[in-house]
């Protein structure tokens, strides 16, 4: 007797009413049950496995992706490899398996600098501005690889971050934490990137500033730039996210839209504090 009532022939071996060749063993179990739908992904780090240098693997078959015009957020507990996944996508990690593709082009073997040239904008978590240089010079350095006139890009950045225009002649190191992050994002936008990657943009700023920063990030996304972002503040980040990736120990644990993840009881229990 098996649990499955449909598999119980009850000893009936009458070949005239039942085909003795029986049924095949091949059954369909496609996918993970949580389809990531990455075929449209604009930027994808696909099943990446790797670590720093020759060290042990930190990422295990980890996939993160962002679609055109969307915000994708990577969340997870401390030490889950969120920032590592981001660095892997940006080429700062030895990826031993898997691939990174930007707009359909495989960029797995490109150096970070070359990825910038390909249209990726990256804002590191720390020391992401030139503290001794003015805000405007920071933006100029962001546009270093551009040989054309970048004044209108700068104007756009100033439109997005009005406070920067006010403080353009001030040394970036003298600004407050939130303003520094705006400089950092602004600097990355100066190359007119096709995709923007933010590594914990709200780390170490006050809740009020955090809200403002999230607003700004949404505004940047509205200009049509897809954003891939690592966030410590999972709840807020998922609220604005079109797509969320929950990483645990360097592997994908949950994937879904921001709303789905917020609603998922298990995600809530483990990562969102109930």
């Amino acid at each position: 007797m098996s649990d499955n009532p449909y598999k119980d022939g009850r000893g009936n071996k009458d070949a005239s009413i039942a085909n003795p060749k029986g049924t095949g063993t091949l059954s369909a179990h496609p996918g993970t049950g949580a389809a990531m739908n990455t075929q449209n992904a604009f930027l994808i780090g696909d099943s990446m496995t790797g670590g720093y240098g020759n060290g042990p693997d930190i990422l295990h078959d980890c996939t993160v992706a962002v679609d055109a015009g969307e915000i994708a957020v990577i969340v997870g507990p401390n030490g889950a490899g969120k920032s590592t996944a981001m660095k892997a996508v940006f080429g700062m990690l030895n990826v031993r398996q898997g691939s990174v593709r930007l707009d359909g082009e495989d960029i797995t073997d490109l150096s970070p600098q070359d990825r910038v040239a390909k249209g990726m904008g990256f804002v590191p978590q720390t020391s992401n501005i030139f503290t001794s240089m003015t805000v405007e010079e920071n933006l100029e350095m962001g546009a270093f690889i551009r040989r054309d006139d970048f004044r209108d890009t700068m104007a756009q950045v100033y439109d997005l971050f009005p406070i920067l225009k006010e403080k353009r002649r001030q040394a970036a190191g003298e600004l407050s934490g939130g303003q520094r992050q705006q400089v950092a994002v602004g600097r990355a936008l100066m190359t007119r990137p096709k995709v923007l990657m933010l590594d914990e943009p709200t780390a170490g700023v006050s809740p009020i500033v955090m809200d403002e920063l999230f607003d700004r990030i949404i505004e940047v996304a509205r200009t049509g730039i897809p954003i891939l972002m690592v966030e410590q503040n999972a709840r807020q980040a998922l609220e604005i996210a079109d797509k969320g990736y929950v990483l645990v120990q360097g592997a994908n644990a949950f994937t879904g839209t921001g709303k789905e993840l917020l609603a998922d009881p298990e995600v809530r229990k483990s990562f969102l504090g109930g």
Binding site: P124, S127, N128, T131, M133, M141, G142, R187
Partner: peptide
């Protein structure tokens, strides 16, 4: 000056 200030970021900026 950028390179002197922050080498990593200068590299990221394509310097």
């Amino acid at each position: 000056r950028a390179y002197s200030d922050n080498e990593d970021l200068a590299l990221l900026s394509g310097i």
